[in-house]
Nucleic acid binder design. Structure first.
Lengths: 301, 301
DNA sequence: TCCTTTGTTTTGTCCTGGACAAATAGTACT
DNA sequence: AGTACTATTTGTCCAGGACAAAACAAAGGA
């Protein structure tokens, strides 16, 4: 077998495990133990990379690396997601319709998926579409990915197609003029954009003026953007995948850096368990986003 | 001055300079020299982070860190881009029209920009629009960003709005059925998607069946996706910003990992200076992408 | 029985300082 | 002016130590 081998940087890229972690695991747990090239540098065979990806996925579900590494390969792939706390069994609204959409993605049938989504959009209208279709669907996909029934590339396909539907819908809305000026973006290392798009749709429906800047803005650039656009609100989105531990520090740092005139709002499933911070508004749900806009208007009337 | 300070991980996120680089610079050049927190860990004040971002930008233009760090702050910001080799002064087609579009972005006038783009799209048709508007525009933005006349957030706004126009245009095309099945994505750490969208537009216009998977797919997942979708072609995009040195190894690695039945194509401004690789087709321009599709059809007739 | 508090283990990240090869610049020679 | 060769610059890797925050387990109290 000609496994040319991945160097440590390639493994970091592919698995999301930092070089430090890879080295310290090798020291502590005796896995992974890569080959060495002629210069004594680590060279990971493809099988180890595959195993590492699996371990990483299970870790994201709450398992601990020490246990996982000690588990033989066969058992590993059978491990169930280990969600913490209350896992409400997904709101039961329209379960079958959503399942059907997921099936289309599973079948890799992009065309049929897009059609079905457009149909739902037309039937439900944008607001209900976002709240009753896209939001629960995204959640389902996250769960499916967690329990292994969705592959990475299926999740990518879902995201890409859904983005298109949403963006298209947003494009048809009249440009907002009355409301607050909302700058939408995410911090570096947070590349999930569906949450931002949902928020944008909601805000745009309320007539707010949205400035979508895509994902991954360095904090100091967010400040410059907020100043340049004279934004009333800076809205950030955090996905579940974003390392929770970093969020409070990040928000505080950004709050200190932003002009005092700009409010800082944060939303997304990643902030569910974050405790309140001074000067930052945490929006747990899309409904709260709507009321937040109304409250802002009331305060600035 | 209450500079709360960025820890080394935050600086890496915000500047794109790795922790290793930050530490080795401190050792070698005596900059940046951060404060230390109570545990002896580095704490970078905001000014240093700003300077680092500037240095990084100039490095991406071909300057060398040793010189830059020795340069006093005032001179730094005045440094011109130092492009290597032949810098054709941007094809002169329709210069004023493009400049006008750039001005709209500079004025942060999203609505006017979108309108102007839609108008051009309607006038030129999708193919010419991609080749004569989006491609040169993207290039201009890159140059503007290099010489400092564009801010990060302006580039983000440009990208976000342009993506929308392109995606919307692609959505109106009939789903391809005859051509090769093309899987479009990018490798981890390569998040620029405009190149991919341009390629998708071109391929879709040729009637090829496109499977857009967004950006940042781990190599081993690209293989799985190619197998699952039975892709004839895997098309990758590399922007100029992507570290050139890594590209050959990456492509070779992916080539070894992909099923032999799938061709591997790579495009984007990042591959301009890459030398030919066995089993990989390098597409320097969008025109070549079109002819590549035709050649594929001829070979598989 | 459930919840809170306290101790213990696990785990990620940071640190120092050394090494080396690839890329780039500089120099000599045809 | 081009080409071959040498010197410098620069990014990345390595080892192994340290430590605090998070996760867990145990003990105590309502």
């Amino acid at each position: 077998m000609n496994t040319p081998g991945f160097n440590i940087a390639a493994v970091e890229r592919d698995t999301g495990l930092s070089k430090d972690v890879l080295r310290v695991w090798e020291r502590r747990y005796g896995f992974p133990v890569p080959e060495r090239d002629s210069h004594g540098e680590r060279l990971y065979p493809a099988e180890q990379v595959t195993r590492l990806r699996l371990i990483k996925r299970l870790m994201d579900q709450g398992h601990r690396p020490g246990k996982l590494i000690a588990t033989p390969a066969e058992e590993l792939s059978a491990l169930a997601p280990r969600r913490s706390g209350q896992m409400e069994p997904t709101a039961q609204s329209d379960t079958s319709g959503l399942a059907e959409l997921l099936t289309l993605i599973k079948q890799h049938d992009a065309t049929a998926y897009l059609q079905a989504m457009q149909q739902r959009l037309a039937r439900q209208g944008l607001q209900r579409f976002v709240q009753d279709t896209i939001a629960p669907l995204t959640r389902r996909v996250g769960e499916a990915w967690e329990d292994g029934s969705f592959e990475v590339f299926e999740e990518h396909l879902f995201t890409e197609l859904t983005k298109r539907v949403l963006r298209q819908a947003i494009a048809t809305l009249p440009p907002g003029v009355r409301g607050p000026r909302v700058l939408l973006t995410s911090v570096p290392d947070e590349q999930h954009i569906l949450g931002l798009l949902m928020a944008e749709a909601i805000f745009a429906l309320e007539g707010a003026e949205c400035i979508p800047l895509g994902t991954q803005m360095p904090l100091l650039e967010i400040r410059r953007a907020a100043e340049a656009h004279q934004a009333d609100i800076v809205a950030l989105s955090f996905s579940v995948a974003f390392p929770q531990r970093q969020i409070p520090a990040l928000l505080q740092q950004l709050r200190e850096v932003l002009p005092a005139s700009a409010e800082l709002w944060a939303g997304g499933s990643g902030i569910a368990r974050i405790s309140p911070l001074p000067g930052v508004r945490l929006l747990g749900t899309l409904e709260r986003a709507i009321s937040a806009i109304e409250e802002w208007r009331a305060a600035h009337a």
